[in-house]
């Protein structure tokens, strides 16, 4: 029963990683860049919800919606100001810019919100589920997190498969020039990708802070790095890869904490990443790069 409990916790944490990983993986797939500021968008999203609920007394749902809207605007603004001018620059320049944006967001938050740790109020009011005669208790937060992850994955898959904008995203991710010849606005498509990723980051942030309720300006960086790991783990650029990578990373982390060592759990998670990349460099569901004839 202990193991089942840990597995459920792992899936819950992994669901959050998966939602964040989507942002990394979609942006990488389409703009071929690693947006290291993605984790800090999570932090901004959390602060928006915190201020709305604690200082302004707004309800949980409207606060989350506002947070999603602000994060979408923030993500699109960052893309326009920091990344779009570098569209033809080397990938190293873009990477360094992304790290710069990450520090900028962290330090701006430090300036605006202060360094004091804030205590985040859980937005989930759903009661816990008691199973197996009281031996297994699944918290409301866990249920909401996993359901959110499933809904987001399904919605995103349908969006990409069934809508024109989704098909345009696939076309841009494969061949920008050919996509333009079809009349697809490449910059608009990249912007939309950032919008979706940032909106999802806001949701992931709220779920993360509901499970781990300490809020600091640096809260986004660790889940951000881990979600990036999850994206690489599953195969960067692949949406199902983000899901599988996220869930597996969550499970490895929780099991590592439970059975091996609390201090070493992160080291174990990253060690697994290294092993996976040694065996299959493109990640579990990553595409093998094919030579085009």
């Amino acid at each position: 029963m202990e193991l089942v409990k840990y597995l459920i916790n792992g899936i819950s944490l992994g669901s959050i990683y998966a939602i964040i990983a989507l942002g990394y993986t979609m942006v990488y797939g389409i703009a071929k860049m690693l947006n290291f500021a993605h984790g800090d968008i999570i932090m901004v999203g959390c602060y928006v919800v915190f201020i709305c609920m604690s200082n302004l007394g707004i309800g949980a749902i409207p606060s989350i919606i506002l947070s999603v809207v602000i994060c979408i605007a923030l993500g699109m603004t960052i893309e326009k100001i920091a990344y779009k001018p570098l569209r033809k620059a080397t990938s190293l320049a873009v990477l360094i810019t992304a790290i710069g944006v990450s520090y900028f967001l962290q330090n701006s938050a430090l300036l605006v919100f202060g360094a004091n740790t804030k205590s985040f109020t859980n937005v989930v009011t759903l009661p816990s589920l008691t199973l197996a005669g009281g031996e297994l208790i699944i918290s409301g937060t866990t249920i909401v997190t996993v359901v959110c992850c499933i809904v987001i994955m399904l919605a995103l898959t349908l969006f990409i498969k069934k809508t024109k904008a989704g098909q345009a995203m696939l076309a841009v991710s494969e061949d920008k020039d050919a996509a333009q010849l079809m009349g697809i606005n490449v910059n608009g498509t990249i912007s939309l990708t950032f919008a979706i990723g940032s909106g999802l980051a806001a949701i992931a942030g709220v779920l993360f802070c509901s499970a781990y309720p300490t809020l600091t300006p640096f809260i986004g960086s660790m889940p951000g790095i881990k979600a990036f790991t999850a994206a690489v783990f599953g195969g960067i650029g692949s949406i199902p890869g983000a899901l599988i990578g996220g869930i597996l990373l969550g499970i490895i982390e929780i099991l590592g904490k439970a059975y091996i060592s609390t201090q070493l759990s992160d080291a174990i998670a990253f060690a697994v990443l290294i092993i996976v990349l040694l065996v299959k460099p493109s990640g579990m569901l990553g595409e093998n790069i094919r030579e085009k004839v």
Partner: peptide, 26 residues
């Protein structure tokens, strides 16, 4: 004006039907 690029440049991960639909994107 439509342009068929050198080396075809079809969207190799998409189906034939999806490629054709993208041709009518606008």
């Amino acid at each position: 004006m439509a342009h068929v690029p050198e080396g075809r440049r079809v969207f190799s991960q998409l189906s034939v039907y999806e490629n054709l639909k993208l041709g009518a994107y606008t």
